[in-house]
């Protein structure tokens, strides 16, 4: 007893000054790392801005609304690429979010204990597959299936709308969206599963005790409880889908044309950069490509910033979240 007391009183005395120095140094180092990130972000923005100055000067705000992309006459506009990036991402989210929530619920609530771990590992492995593999799979496996089965079916049902009309080649916006969906499902599903696991057992047990069905527990307890976490998972997937390059380049069709049909080939910002950067001769061409990069940077920044703000508002005291 007394020995413990002595050692307890000795330790703070002996180590206090050293620890203070260690703390200060540690704090300085970690602050340095963190500030480094901010500097890097600022430097990236600055370089993108500077390198795209030529294009911004030449086209002005019209760069964002022009659908032209003509390397011969050096007239460039970002509208097709912006539209393609947003449309393919929206398709991906529309498909991926319900599927991911389903997977997460199954793994967290419905699956027998034995198979939860292998399923969970399998999903995390899916997230580790390089994107170019998804792209090749999309081109060689998914695209022929799309043109043989899914597109004729969709065309038959909804062919009267402009969205599902036109030639069914299997390569285009819809295929790109589906490949993207597949790529972000592992991210959204594994985070959402962890969110569902954190729902307190008492809440669920009480609901079951009151005679609720599994569906009612999911609908009224688990999803509302985990809503903030689910939004976070969705934004994680969104961030990945916006910037995805190789997989999209393989299947989107790489055509600089606006088209209402989701069967038609299009282009995204990232795939335009991947395709054209190496061979862009001409300063205005190169500058326009950098300007596209700047636009993607800003879109990602705005969407993620908006997401943060939204999450903050949801968790503010007095809100319903």
């Amino acid at each position: 007893m007394s020995r413990t007391a002595t050692s307890e009183s000795q330790i703070p005395e002996a180590t206090a000054p050293r620890r203070a120095f260690g703390d200060v140094a540690f704090k300085a180092i970690t602050t340095g790392f963190a500030v480094g990130i901010l500097l890097l972000l600022g430097a990236m923005f600055f370089v993108l801005w500077r390198e795209s100055a030529l294009a911004i000067e030449a086209f002005g705000p019209g760069f964002l609304t022009s659908a032209k992309w003509n390397p011969v006459t050096e007239k460039f506009g970002a509208l097709v690429a912006i539209t393609g990036t947003l449309v393919s991402t929206v398709i991906a989210l529309l498909v991926a979010v319900p599927v991911s929530i389903g997977i997460a619920l199954f793994l967290a609530e419905l699956a027998p204990e034995k198979i939860r771990t292998p399923f969970g590992v399998a999903i995390e492995l899916l997230a580790a597959i390089p994107s170019i593999v998804y792209g090749m799979w999309g081109l060689f496996v998914l695209a022929p299936l799309m043109s043989a089965y899914l597109q004729p079916a969709l065309g038959g049902l909804f062919g009267w709308t402009p969205f599902f009309s036109g030639p069914q080649m299997g390569i285009g916006m819809l295929t790109a969206g589906l490949v993207l969906a597949l790529m972000i499902i592992p991210f959204i599903a594994s985070v959402t599963r962890d969110v569902f696991r954190m729902v307190p057992a008492q809440l669920k047990e009480s609901a079951y005790g009151m005679g609720a069905t599994t569906w009612e527990v999911v609908k009224d307890i688990m999803i509302p409880y985990g809503r903030k976490g689910i939004y976070g998972a969705v934004f994680l997937g969104l961030g990945r889908a916006l910037g995805e390059t190789m997989a999209v380049t393989f299947v989107i069709g790489n055509a600089h044309r606006l088209n209402w049909s989701l069967f038609a080939p299009g282009n995204s910002i990232a795939s335009t950069l991947a395709n054209e950067f190496t061979e862009a001769d001409g300063d205005l061409y190169l500058s326009s490509l950098v300007a596209l990069g700047l636009v993607l940077f800003l879109i990602t920044f705005l969407i993620l910033g908006f997401a943060q703000l939204y999450l903050k508002r949801m968790s503010a005291p007095g809100s319903k979240g």
Binding site: K68, V72, F250, N254, E276, E279, A280
Partner: peptide, 15 residues
Amino acid sequence: GNAKAVQWPAGMGGK
């Protein structure tokens, strides 16, 4: 016109 990349009026692009 004639260039290493042009504004293609039709079709899709492969890398």
